[in-house]
């Protein structure tokens, strides 16, 4: 989109503003040699924006997940401001605990389910306006500015990960805007990840001491998650659909 009016704004202050400064390469060291002479050294991590060299993902160890624990669900709910009220059929659920019993062997497991952040997300394919999209770093989001509330993504999602907002909302979190008539789902706590943090569910799980959830960059071979994935067997849900989910489960 053209922003003709911006041209008139060209009177940028003489000093480099914070944004341009950070854009030029993230962490930097500034050294003042003498009044008026400044040397800046750039290095470290690149810009905080979604980076295509990164793919954020989760590894969930089903054996470590306790059946009666829902700390991840509570953690997400508090962080992102969604609540399960009196209408379970229409209330949003970004993350839920599912209890599974193997029909053949009788083994019982419990695990959290959320948006699986597919590499080939069906919700993105079907969205007519492109509101459902995948960031360069693999996080699948809904752009609520262009979501028309058709719910086709909810029909297409194999994981039942999305919720439609059925009622007026108030007091949303400033970093997690959500409103009536649009679709939403787990954002992988994108507001935390962009600041270098980890998702609230992982943090909550760690706090219980279960340590069933691991967050990290799947593309970085030195990350804990990549090392764990390379060492132990794990599965993605509905692997038969070849969606290459960003959330994987071990010991399922």
């Amino acid at each position: 989109m053209k922003l003709p009016a911006l041209k008139t704004m060209a009177k940028v202050p003489d000093q480099i503003n914070r944004r341009d400064f950070l854009k030029s390469g993230g962490a930097a060291v500034t050294l003042t040699l003498a009044p008026g002479i400044t040397v800046m050294a750039f290095g470290g991590e690149a810009s905080a924006a979604a980076n295509p060299a990164t793919r954020w993902g989760l590894l969930i160890d089903v054996n470590k997940c306790a059946k009666d624990c829902d700390a991840c669900v509570t953690g997400c709910s508090v962080e992102n401001g969604w609540k399960m009220g009196g209408n379970p059929e229409t209330d949003a659920q970004w993350i839920r605990k599912v209890d599974l019993t193997n029909k053949q062997t009788g083994r019982e497991v419990s695990m959290p389910m959320m948006c699986q952040h597919c590499e080939e997300p069906p919700c993105v394919d079907v969205c007519p306006t492109g509101a459902s999209f995948k960031r360069a770093d693999g996080i699948v989001l809904v752009d609520k500015h262009t979501c028309i509330g058709c719910r086709y993504c909810m029909m297409a999602c194999p994981f039942k990960a999305r919720s439609f907002i059925h009622e007026d909302l108030e007091d949303q979190k400033s970093y997690a805007p959500r409103g009536k008539g649009t679709v939403e789902s787990c954002t992988l706590c994108v507001h935390r990840v962009d600041e270098g943090g980890i998702p609230a569910c992982v943090e909550a799980c760690d706090a219980t001491g279960h340590g069933a959830m691991m967050f990290g960059d799947l593309k970085d071979p030195t990350s804990d998650i990549a090392i764990a994935l390379a060492s132990y067997a794990s599965v993605g849900l509905r692997d038969d659909l070849r969606l290459n989910t960003g959330v994987r489960y071990s010991n399922l």
Binding site: K23, R135, D137, I139, D143, S174, Y175, V190, H191, E195
Partner: peptide, 13 residues
Amino acid sequence: MRNGNRDIDYSLK
């Protein structure tokens, strides 16, 4: 929203 650039000059917040 799309690019994850949080270091912006104008936000509704």
